[in-house]
Design a protein around this nucleic acid. Structure first.
Lengths: 203, 203
DNA sequence: CGACACATGTTGACACTGAGTACATTGAAT
DNA sequence: ATTCAATGTACTCAGTGTCAACATGTGTCG
C-alpha cells in the first residue's frame, strides 16, 4: 500500500513480508519461493529477480530479525550507564522474551549456519549489532566495579551463551514443562544464577 | 562386512550409518533418502521398508546422538559423588567437546523441533537420559553443600542453558574467533563463570 | 523333506512439489 | 521509439512418498 507506483508493486518488500508470515506459521525450513509467489499472485520465477535464491531471501529475513533483536535490547543499553545490574537483567529478559515471541524467526536467525558458508553482507553486521548491546552493558558493569574484573568478551559470551541456550531450549520445547512451575520464574532464576557468576563477589 | 549373511545385508543399520556420514558431511537438512540408497547400491524404495519417512530416519539418528552424548557425560557422573565440582567442570567440557566434535549431528539433535510435533518414541527418552546426567551431578553438589541450596532443576537448567548456548554459538560460528584467543580458554572461562553462579558462596 | 508364509528387497512406474534457468514479453521512463 | 528492469512462460532436474508386481532368502509346520 506504500509504493504501488511500480509495475506490480514493490515485490521485494512484499516477498519479505509474506515470507515472514510463512516463517512464523510454518517455520523457515518449510518456506518455498513458489508458495510466496502464489500468495502474491505472481509468477514462480518473479522472486528470482530480487533474490539470487531462497537462501538469499532467508538471509535478509534473518538480518531483519537481528535488527529487531538489537532494537529490543536498546532500552537495556540505555540503562547500562547508571545501573549495569538492572540493565543486564533487563537485557536478558528482553532477549528471551524476543525469542519466545518470535520463535520461528529466532530459529531462522540462529539455526542456519549455512548462511556463513556463503557471504551475505549485512548479516554479519546485524549480528554484531546485537552482540554489541550485551558488550556495552558488560563494559559499563566492569568499569563501575560491580561486575567481576574479567575480560569483557568472556563475561559477554557467558551471558550470551546462557540466554541463547535458554531461549533455544525453550523454543525447541526441550525443557520438560511439568518440572518447571512457570517460564517467568525459570527465566528469572537462571538470570539470577548467571548474575551470581558475573557480579563482583561481596567482600 | 559384519553380517553379509542376509539377502543384501542388514539395510537398516547400513542406512543409519551412511545417513550419519551424510549428516556429517553435508548437514541434516541436505539429506536425501535416494542418495543414501544410491550410496548403498540399493533401490530407491528400499529405505521405506525400514523407515516410514525421512523424518523417522532422522529421528533415530538424533536418538543415537543423544545416546552418544549421554555416554560422553558418563565419566563425569561417576565423579559426581566424591567431587561434584570437578564432575560439573568435566561434564561441561565433555558436553561442549561432543558438540564440537559432531557439529552436524548436534545440530540435528537440537535443531529440529518438528520431531516433537510427531511422536517419535525413544527420542524423548534419550533426551531425558542426557539431562539426567547433569541432574545427578547437581543433586550431588547440593546435597553435599558445595552447590547453592536452590531447586535442583533450576541449577541444572542454568548449566544446560549455558553449555548448550555455548555449543550452539561455537558450532554456528557466531563467535568472532578474532576476539577470542582460543576455544579451550573460552570454554574454561565460561565454565568458570557458570560455576561461580552455582557454587555456594564463600562465607 | 517339502510346502508355504513372511520379511526383505527390486523394478518400474506415478503424482506431486520445489529449485533454478533460458528466453520471451511487458510497460514505464528517457 | 527505444531501452531496461520487472515479470511471465516454458522448461529441466531432483526429491518425496506411493503403488503394484515380482523375486528370493529364512524359518516354520506338517
Amino acid at each position: 500500500m506504500q509504493k504501488p507506483t511500480y509495475h506490480h508493486g514493490n515485490l521485494k518488500a512484499a516477498l519479505l513480508s509474506v515470507a515472514l508470515d510463512h516463517v512464523r506459521q510454518y517455520g523457515a525450513d518449510k518456506i518455498s519461493l513458489r508458495a510466496l509467489a502464489r500468495d502474491l499472485g505472481v509468477s514462480q520465477t518473479a522472486p528470482y529477480r530480487h533474490f539470487a535464491d531462497k537462501d538469499a531471501l532467508l538471509a535478509e529475513l534473518a538480518a531483519e530479525g537481528f535488527n529487531l533483536l538489537a532494537q529490543a535490547l536498546q532500552p537495556a543499553t540505555q540503562t547500562a550507564q547508571h545501573d549495569p545490574v538492572s540493565a543486564m537483567e533487563q537485557a536478558g529478559a528482553s532477549y528471551v522474551k524476543f525469542a519466545l515471541t518470535h520463535p520461528e524467526h529466532y530459529r531462522l536467525m540462529f539455526g542456519s549456519a549455512h548462511f556463513h558458508d556463503r557471504c551475505f553482507p549485512g548479516l554479519d553486521r546485524t549480528t554484531e549489532q546485537s552482540y554489541d548491546a550485551i558488550l556495552q552493558i558488560i563494559e559499563a558493569g566492569i568499569s563501575q566495579g560491580v561486575f567481576r574484573a574479567a575480560a569483557t568478551e568472556l563475561l559477554a559470551l557467558s551471558a550470551w551463551s546462557t540466554v541463547h541456550g535458554l531461549a533455544s531450549l525453550l523454543i525447541d520445547e526441550l525443557i520438560d514443562q511439568s518440572r518447571v512451575e512457570d517460564n517467568e520464574q525459570l527465566i528469572k532464576a537462571i538470570a539470577n544464577t548467571l548474575m551470581q557468576g558475573i557480579l563482583t563477589p561481596p567482600t
